[in-house]
Nucleic acid binder design. Sequence first.
DNA 1: TCCATAGTTCTGAGATAATAGAATTATGTG
DNA 2: CACATAATTCTATTATCTCAGAACTATGGA
Lengths: 123, 123
Amino acid sequence: MESKSATLSLSALGHEGRLAIFRLLVSAGPTGLAAGEIARQLGMVPNSLSANLNILSRANLTTSHRDGRSIIYQADFSTMTALVGFLVGDCCGGAPEICAPLNQLLSQAQQCAPTPSRQKELC
Amino acid sequence: MESKSATLSLSALGHEGRLAIFRLLVSAGPTGLAAGEIARQLGMVPNSLSANLNILSRANLTTSHRDGRSIIYQADFSTMTALVGFLVGDCCGGAPEICAPLNQLLSQAQQCAPTPSRQKELC
DNA sequence: TCCATAGTTCTGAGATAATAGAATTATGTG
DNA sequence: CACATAATTCTATTATCTCAGAACTATGGA
């Protein structure tokens, strides 16, 4: 991940409503949630929610697909992981023995990436 | 960390210049860097840099202290860690066996928190 | 086809943030 | 004290974001 896309993701998350949406999707896991369900749980007006989902999506933080009349949104775990990795990159001024576990953790968390076939077995 | 302060930190980092500053400070480690040194390395005008350092500071992402004519800025590793923890909290819809390593990593990275006495030995 | 449901897009007013020039404060040195 | 250096604060212009009302598109069922 480079600076531009990291900035895009971070500023997308730098908004209370969008952060709440993203965290809700993260906790919902790979199954995701319909837009209406998100609106209900967070008490958001449909058009605001839609605009904010669009911003999260342009920042590659969510994916979506239509299911009948609903549109299902999911957190994009691979972007999330890449973002965290970018943020803490070169942590502690090149003392890898301290932050190595972080990198290891991040590489393991990569398995949470929303590849449909792997999601059910892993998550 | 709650939503409000996480949002503050994320929107502070959602700006290309500030993200560059923060990452430079993260890679500089607990020693930190003088404002002028940051300006030189990133090619920023002093007043813009100052404004952005102020925003990072209000978001608890940096600490600073005066050293002669210079002011030394450091990344606040404890906020960074808390922020990452908040972001990936409840990852994968309650399948802790997948994301447990992440939590472990984050708790280990806590040791990078800028407690001056521990910084030298740990980082 | 007609209607209800689910979401999205359009729009404009108000608020907030970014930028850089100029002036100001604080520190150290001759 | 006078001067240079290091950073910050002030200021005004410009650009961007936010929000909700209203209209629009897409899907499924009677």
